[in-house]
Nucleic acid binder design. Structure first.
Lengths: 129, 129
DNA sequence: GCTTGACCTGGAGTGCGCTCCAGGGGTCAT
DNA sequence: ATGACCCCTGGAGCGCACTCCAGGTCAAGC
């Protein structure tokens, strides 16, 4: 299943987990922590039903987490969505995060260069052995 | 102080911390975990004295940690240095790690693109408000 | 109507990588 | 010789982000 071919009534938590790449437990954990933009509706028997929007937001959460934003900061970001006209603040958070990510990428890239040099050194050493 | 202008007798743990960018506690922790190639010598009163080589190795540890290698894996890598002729294995670990780092960089880059798109969206929205 | 399996909740447990602390030196300037 | 510092050890504690568990509900298939 892809996110665009989701049934109208929404999907179960396990399907949402697969679609988002998160675990079922993590989905419930994120919801408990208030990271969901809107909590998924419940079926008549109380089970969560994730809509396309719900799943899309999970994608945003993954994006922020994988780029190293802590849960606490994501919480602040989500909370702004509940405040009318907070777009400038949301933008500011994203821009600041972008800077962090770029710095991080840069640092990792520098260390990667060092790894490559070490590999070169060993490749020569091993080849001439 | 830079690593090339270190006194011959070695430097204290706090100096080594500054030079490496790690904390004093982390230095002792790494040593406890067996991540040091050679344990630093001790002064007559039992204090650690880090040589240039010691500090250079700390740089390697930082390189591996900052690129996401777990302590456990670094331990395995260091242990190979105690085995004669283990250069091929050390090389293999570095090559495998390199692949991981590249995959990671790639993933982060992809998420960064998504962040940029979100920023673009908000910039337009905020500008036209 | 019984089993199976996915789901529910609240809360405890885990792994990682540090970080901090108590209690105790040694060294050096005043 | 007193105080200020830095250092030592073993071990406890912490923050983060999950992950797991017990005990229970519900729907569907046989």
């Amino acid at each position: 299943m892809t996110v665009t071919e989701m049934p109208a009534g929404g999907v179960t938590i396990s399907a949402a987990a697969e679609l988002s790449g998160l675990s079922v437990d993590t989905l419930r954990y994120y919801e408990k922590e208030g990271l969901t933009l809107h909590r998924p509706e419940r079926s008549s028997s109380g089970q969560r039903r994730y809509t396309e929007d719900n799943v899309r937001w999970l994608g945003t959460l993954v994006m922020l987490r994988k780029t190293g934003m802590p849960i606490r900061d994501i919480k602040r970001f989500v909370d702004l969505y509940r405040i009318e006209g907070s777009e400038p603040q949301r933008l500011a958070i994203l821009q600041a995060h972008r800077v962090h990510v770029l710095e991080d990428l840069n640092e990792v890239q520098t260390h990667l260069d060092a790894i490559n040099r070490k590999i070169d050194y060993y490749e020569e050493k091993v080849l001439n052995a």
